[in-house]
Amino acid sequence: MKKILLLMVISFVASNLNAQQTVWGYLKDSISNEPIELASVTNTNKKQTVITNNNGLFKVEISKDDILSISAVGYRYYTFIYSGVIAASDTIELYLVPISRNLNNVTVQNSGISQYTLDSLERDNEFKEAMISPPVKAVELSNSGAGFGISLNRLTNREKSKRKAVQLFNNSEKEAYINYRFSAAIVKKYSGLKNEALQGFVQRHRPTYDWLRKHPKEEDVKYYINDKLKADRKSNKN
């Protein structure tokens, strides 16, 4: 039975629970086990986003009770509350579930429908189903392999939790839109960058959601990338 865990709490063996911690992790496809490159990992509390490299590796700064939201084109979201601190030598593994193509009345082959629109419609359908579905088990296994998850439906204040879930979903949709408009393929196309140089550029110069909505054409992104390339070259000369 397909279930969506809207909000997860991962519990780690910890000391000094209130300190900020650097966490390393790998992001993988839940079916193929292949790494997911250039996905966004956002600390929603600190409003900081990092990008996974070509091996799916990421490094993020996080404190107790911070919320991480993970987004990649073609995948469902993964969001969890960090409830502890892992040892410096530990690396977590997280998995994203690919989005299915079971949308009613939508023709995937229609060239007028973008990948982002299709993904967004599917995620929205799944989210709405999860919000109105009967409560699931209070405790479910986390997909990180590092702890346990608590279902949104069994959190203390259900209505408050739902409002928080909606907010997280909307924020994740914004990250997904940025991923789509400022994708690795587009940046590589106009910059010629590859591998670590590409990852670094995408992370340093990731545009805001509001900027992209105000500049809806790919040509706008092209000029944005060119401007940032010039700024990087100028900075490297100094």
Rank of each mutant, 00 (worst) to 15 (best):
L168F: 08
F169P: 00
F169Y: 05
N171G: 10
S172T: 09
E173T: 01
E175D: 15
A176T: 03
A176E: 11
A176N: 12
Y177C: 01
Y177F: 08
Y177H: 02
N179Y: 11
Y180E: 01
Y180G: 00
Y180T: 05
F182M: 12
S183I: 01
A184S: 14
A185L: 15
I186S: 07
I186R: 11
I186G: 05
K189H: 10
K189P: 06
S191T: 01
S191P: 00
K194S: 07
K194I: 05
E196M: 08
A197P: 02
A197S: 09
A197D: 11
A197Y: 09
A197M: 12
L198S: 01
L198R: 03
Q199T: 11
Q199H: 11
Q199V: 04
G200Y: 06
Q203S: 02
Q203P: 00
Q203N: 03
Q203G: 02
R204T: 14
R204I: 08
R204L: 14
H205R: 13
H205P: 06
R206C: 04
T208I: 05
T208W: 13
Y209E: 09
Y209K: 07
D210G: 04
D210H: 04
W211P: 07
W211L: 14
W211E: 14
K214H: 10
K214A: 13
K214I: 09
P216E: 07
P216T: 02
P216H: 07
P216W: 09
K217Q: 15
K217H: 15
E218M: 07
E218F: 13
E218H: 09
E218Y: 10
E219S: 12
D220Y: 03
D220I: 02
K222L: 11
Y223N: 13
Y224A: 07
I225R: 08
I225M: 02
D227W: 11
D227G: 06
D227P: 03
K228P: 06
K228Q: 12
K228H: 11
L229A: 03
L229M: 14
